[in-house]
Design a binder for these strands. Structure first.
Length: 237
DNA sequence: AAACAGGCCAACCGCCGAATC
DNA sequence: AGATTCGGCGGTTGGCCTGTT
């Protein structure tokens, strides 16, 4: 048999949280933490809520240092770039935006950014796939789907490998560049946009994806590399 | 001032992989 | 080994808010 049931769904409160509930949950978590179990937490804290609901409320609203609204242009650009790279993996995208939650980023994209970039239809510095130099795609048609990357930039990368060690200009038409992508790999490739690159240092066996974040500091995009590795576009040999 | 439409966002739903029994 | 739950995630929705007519 498995674990005990999650919660009595007929006996839990739903809908918007009251200030009292917020206070109760916040106080409890500040004092005791989750103790590794969200399901039993509401009972211990004296809340008639499902554990999942408590978790969501904490992560999206009550957690310290959460920012709401007021997305900057830099954040918009980063969201767009990452969306074009990895698709709708909001938790990963939000992880690159301090103080932002996946729900917030998702809402922001769905209500504003998606329309904005569809309407503008040209934003090569941020989202190469929207470039006017190529046929105008629908956003959904060209996002990176990590489970089925048939419409992704990464697949195009595989089909049209980059044999040249120098970074390619943003939005380059790399079709017809030649043979399959294999070792020896170039030292650096400007791969997915003007701010994301794959780097392989001399004498290193691993490739790493980097992105220049809004403060201009490079951070490792493990998931870019993982996607490439997972899809067999790079190897560790 | 009232009615309506569209935008926004908090919260729920359902799925999936990992963990547990 | 298989059944079941947990935790986490992305998709969706319902209700409130704001702008327009």
């Amino acid at each position: 048999m498995g674990r005990a049931p999650c919660c009595d769904k007929a006996n839990v409160k739903r809908g918007p949280w009251s200030p009292q509930e917020d206070e109760t949950l916040k106080n409890y978590l500040m004092k005791h933490g989750t103790a590794g179990n969200w399901i039993t937490l509401p009972q211990k804290a004296g809340l008639k809520r499902c554990g999942k609901s408590c978790r969501l409320r904490w992560l999206n609203y009550l957690r310290p240092h959460i920012k709401h609204g007021g997305f900057t242009d830099e954040e918009d650009q980063l969201i767009c770039t990452l969306y074009a790279t990895i698709g709708s993996r909001w938790s990963l995208i939000a992880a690159q935006l301090p103080g932002r939650t996946d729900n917030d980023v998702k809402n922001h994209w769905n209500t504003k950014l998606k329309k904005k970039f569809l309407a503008e239809n040209t934003n090569a510095t941020v989202c190469p796939q929207f470039s006017t130099s190529t046929p105008q795609p629908q956003v959904e048609d060209h996002v990176f789907d990590h489970k089925n990357s048939s419409e992704s930039h990464v697949l195009r990368f595989e089909q049209t490998p980059i044999p040249n060690p120098s970074p390619l200009p943003l939005g380059s038409d790399v079709s017809g560049l030649g043979s399959s992508f294999s070792a020896p790999l170039p030292n650096e490739v400007s791969l997915l946009s003007n701010s994301i690159s794959l780097v392989k240092e001399e004498n290193e066996t691993q490739w790493f994806g980097y992105h220049d974040n809004i403060e201009g500091e490079a951070f490792l995009l493990d998931f870019v590399y993982e996607d490439l590795l997972h899809n067999g576009f790079v190897s560790q040999d």
